[in-house]
């Protein structure tokens, strides 16, 4: 019997796992692939905006500790 690690994983099958053997979250990839390129760009923009907002709102004491 073929060892689990050597088997090609059929990631597209209906019952495909949530995680690849290397730990990659396949549900995120499937979700991203369900979006249009324009929507993917907006997802990235929203992430960056959230991080920039978080940085801007950071209390002075926390930046001194980081």
């Amino acid at each position: 019997m073929e060892p689990e690690a050597d088997r090609p994983h059929d990631l597209a099958r209906e019952s495909s796992p949530d995680y690849a053997p290397d730990g990659v979250d396949l549900t995120l990839i499937r979700w991203m692939l369900s979006l249009t390129p324009s929507e993917r760009l907006q997802v990235l923009q929203d992430h960056v905006n959230a991080v920039e907002k978080s940085r801007a709102n950071r209390a002075p004491w926390s930046s001194a500790q980081s």
Binding site: L28, I29, W31, M32, P37, L41, L44, V48, V51
Partner: peptide
Amino acid sequence: GVAAVLQGVPVNTF
């Protein structure tokens, strides 16, 4: 990273 995201890779870049 932006080219990767636009093709569906769930990573962040700044």
